[in-house]
Computed example of a mutant assay.
Amino acid sequence: MLRFTANLSLLFTEVPLLERFQAAAEAGFKAVEIQFPYELNIDQIQQQLQRHHLKLVLFNVDADTLLQGGEGLAGVPEKQAQFREAVGQALEYARLLNPEVINVLPGRCINNERLPEYLTTFKDNLRHAANAFERIGVKTVFEAVNTVDMPGFMIHSGQQMLDILTELKHPNLAMQYDLYHMHRMGEDCDEFLCEHLAQIGHIQFADCPGRGEPCTGQTDFDRLFDIIAQSDYRGWTGAEYKPSGTTEDSLDWLRRYRLSAL
């Protein structure tokens, strides 16, 4: 199944976040995702979703200063209490907004000597999040990110995610598989999707390199989207790219692949 979401943190940035819901609906999206929705209150988001007949599919647990170059929250031993507060905040939003999945970003480890300690902390925190979100029927996912764009990111391959799933064996835990990040790491995304879609709870994409819309790089989206469409995957596929021009001008791919999926 091939169903697309618009990531409102990267798309439609020509307007403020509160206005991007309408822009996404007018562009033909039926669902959206937001990296970190916490600058808006729950009522504001709920009103926009209802007004524009949209579903909010995904958002992330807060990651502190990760996007500004920091280590994030989920893996830092000294920040476990702060991470659990962030899970509580995500729960408040999820109870009313009813996303399908919530993403936990592993984060960076700047001091490589502490990596084992950070990984242990991350797995403990991931288990805590999976338990918490399971109680309200929301799947927990976690994501590998390339170390070219984000040096020091702890989880940066599909195999690492598989290893964590095998170790934790949690029924409410799955991978978020980002095609851009894994292509950037040299991973064979075609093969990985064919073999492991059953363990993936959410997919995101951008072309590689450059992180633009499809047809701005080297990624074979015909092949990748066909694999998803022909599989038993029932999740969503999120457009999380940086438009090369205006967002509206970058959406030829949506018209093309949405029609091919009908």
Rank of each mutant, 00 (worst) to 15 (best):
L91N: 05
L18K: 12
Y38R: 05
F21L: 07
P116A: 09
E134V: 02
R127K: 15
N125A: 11
A81P: 04
H183M: 12
R108F: 09
D149M: 10
D188P: 04
G69D: 12
T147V: 13
E213M: 11
P151H: 10
T5G: 06
N131T: 10
T120H: 11
V104P: 02
G69H: 09
H156S: 15
F12C: 06
G28M: 12
R108H: 13
Q204A: 14
R108L: 12
N103F: 00
T219E: 12
H170G: 06
Q89K: 14
A23M: 14
D226F: 05
L179K: 03
R184E: 08
L193H: 00
E71W: 07
H156N: 15
C208D: 11
F205K: 02
Y118T: 03
L168N: 06
A94G: 00
P77I: 10
Y38E: 04
W253V: 03
V76L: 09
A25T: 03
L173H: 01
T246H: 09
L40H: 07
C208R: 00
V101H: 01
Q46D: 14
Y177E: 05
A206P: 03
L73H: 00
L193T: 01
E14N: 10
Q176T: 06
Q159D: 13
I45R: 04
Q46L: 15
A174F: 03
S9K: 08
Q50H: 10
R127P: 01
A144N: 05
A174N: 03
W253N: 04
G217I: 08
K139L: 15
L67N: 11
D124P: 01
A130H: 04
C194E: 15
E85D: 15
A31K: 02
T219N: 13
F142D: 01
I110F: 15
E33F: 10
G152F: 06
M1S: 11
Q80V: 11
L73F: 11
Q199V: 09
P214R: 04
V138W: 00
K123Y: 03
P116L: 13
E100R: 04
K79P: 02
E92H: 08
M1K: 10
S157Q: 06
L17H: 07
H183V: 05
R84N: 11
L97W: 01
E113H: 08
C189I: 14
R108M: 13
N103R: 12
L96F: 13
G186N: 13
I136Y: 09
K123I: 00
N146W: 07
P116H: 11
Q82L: 15
N146C: 12
K30M: 07
A86P: 04
D249A: 14
P209N: 09
